[in-house]
């Protein structure tokens, strides 16, 4: 049982967060960034890696490895800590990362809409959050003033 929201629906995920790494080569692991970078040489042929970053870790460190990564999970230590929103923006906009960007940690319904705008497409909801009801949290505003990842043009360009 590991349900997440991905691309607007509730799905079972094959990728699991790992905190203690025994064998980095096992498929379906989302490794801590340090572990991934440490073992990257032994994972050179792989194109299906998963990695997670804490809010104070820089996504820039992943830049040269992104073509090997399928899933990047960004941790929200608290729902009101917005650092991972910037990390997601950089991954999508600056690096053009097209894999899954998953919100993990204290992920709550009322934050989903902003996460989606910043480039997240998957959400592992915090304990106690009603996953089905949380889908409503993805319903955003009809228009947005500013350019972001979901709407790449600001409103003024269509006025």
């Amino acid at each position: 049982m590991n349900q997440i929201i991905r691309d607007q629906s509730i799905v079972e995920t094959d990728y699991q967060i790992v905190t203690e790494v025994s064998d980095p080569g096992i498929k379906g692991q989302i490794l801590p960034m340090n572990a991934l970078l440490e073992h990257i040489a032994s994972l050179s042929g792989r194109r299906d890696l998963g990695v997670w970053l804490d809010a104070d870790e820089d996504v820039e460190e992943l830049e040269v490895h992104l073509d090997q990564i399928d899933v990047i999970a960004l941790n929200f230590p608290m729902y009101n800590d917005g650092r991972a929103l910037s990390s997601a923006n950089i991954l999508r906009r600056r690096y053009g990362f097209e894999g899954e960007i998953r919100a993990i940690g204290d992920v709550r319904r009322d934050q989903l809409e902003q996460m989606q705008r910043c480039g997240f497409n998957a959400y592992s909801m915090a304990e106690g959050q009603d996953v089905a009801a949380s889908l409503n949290g993805l319903k955003g505003f009809s228009h947005s003033y500013q350019a972001a990842i979901d709407r790449t043009e600001p409103l003024f360009r269509s006025r």
């Binding site: 729902y79 009101n80 800590d81 917005g82 929103l85 910037s86 923006n89 809409e113 902003q114 996460m115 989606q116 705008r117 910043c118 505003f141 947005s144 003033y145 500013q146 972001a148 600001p154 409103l155 003024f156």
Partner: peptide, 13 residues
Amino acid sequence: RQWSTFHPEFNWL
């Protein structure tokens, strides 16, 4: 004002 209104990235500074 418009740019900063509901800016998704800067709501949790």
